[in-house]
């Protein structure tokens, strides 16, 4: 998994999960995202790459309306999840975020026990009818987060006591526990050491079986390792979008090429 094997990655393009049409984002006066059109496939890992400040994280946060929490942020254009506009007035961001989960740059476990961290989402969304069901959901999520074996004996210890890599996997488990359909990851490995990074990357590849995963990263190697599709952002524009193999071996846009070869960064 860790080699740059770019061939034989069958991308199932039959089902488009998220479609963005003419998306613009403004922070007060500054124009952060300029007319982005993109279609993201289900059960695929899509990587957003680009230099810092290019708008890739901003665009990611549009996909589950996390930008709503910032007063000065304004979004225009359409973003469709299963053909439903997520910026429609009737859409409740709370319901949306249950479907589109998010993992953040820095591991952010709540100051609660490991169990309560994972059970938080199922509890607020009412996914479990009783304690036994909740236990089951938590265990399943922790197994999916590939951390079950490490924490099964101390489920009631505080989540903040884990190591950085463990914390991030806990956060992934927490996001998975609400059974989302899309998982957004905002530079999930930037605060982790190489070993923890490898573990998380492995996990991402496994998650692809069930979810559409979108990952923002500024490590090109990581994008190459984990993703099937890659989008390159530059100065708020989506410059190029295509199969990961094609982007890294045969970019069409000169800007993409410069970035890949390390001339802009």
């Amino acid at each position: 998994m860790n080699q740059m094997s770019l061939i034989d990655r069958a991308v199932d393009m039959t089902h488009i999960k998220i479609a963005a049409r003419g998306v613009n984002v403004y922070y007060g006066d500054s124009h952060a995202i300029k007319d982005v059109n993109v279609e993201i496939a289900d059960k695929t890992v899509t990587a957003f790459i680009g230099p810092s400040g290019c708008g890739k994280s901003t665009f990611l946060r549009c996909l589950n309306r996390m930008n709503d929490t910032i007063d000065i942020c304004r979004v225009t254009g359409d973003i469709l999840l299963d053909n439903e506009d997520i910026y429609d007035k009737r859409v409740d961001p709370v319901q949306l975020r249950a479907k589109v989960g998010m993992v953040f740059q820095k591991p952010n476990p709540f100051p609660k026990s490991i169990y309560d961290n994972v059970a938080y989402g199922p509890r607020i969304h009412g996914l479990a009818k009783n304690k036994a069901e909740l236990d089951e959901i938590v265990e399943k999520a922790l197994r999916r987060g590939a951390i079950w074996n490490e924490v099964k004996d101390r489920l009631h210890a505080p989540g903040t006591g884990l190591s950085g890599g463990q914390q991030q996997r806990l956060c992934i488990a927490r996001a998975v526990a609400t059974e989302p359909e899309v998982l957004l990851m905002d530079e999930p490995c930037s605060a982790l050491d190489p070993i923890a990074t490898a573990q998380v990357e492995e996990l991402i590849d496994e998650l692809r079986q069930d979810y559409s995963v979108i990952i923002v990263t500024h490590s090109m190697q990581q994008a190459a390792r984990v993703s099937q599709k890659t989008a390159f952002f530059h100065l708020g524009n989506l410059v190029e979008y295509g199969d990961t193999g094609q982007i890294f071996t045969n970019p069409r846009d000169p800007r993409t090429e410069s970035y890949i070869s390390g001339r802009i960064g």
């Binding site: 999840l81 299963d82 439903e84 997520i86 429609d88 009737r90 859409v91 409740d92 709370v94 319901q95 949306l96 479907k99 969304h125 009412g126």
Partner: peptide
């Protein structure tokens, strides 16, 4: 479930 319809819990 459709995003456009709020379920009872929401």
């Amino acid at each position: 479930s459709s995003l456009l319809v709020q379920d009872a819990r929401t």
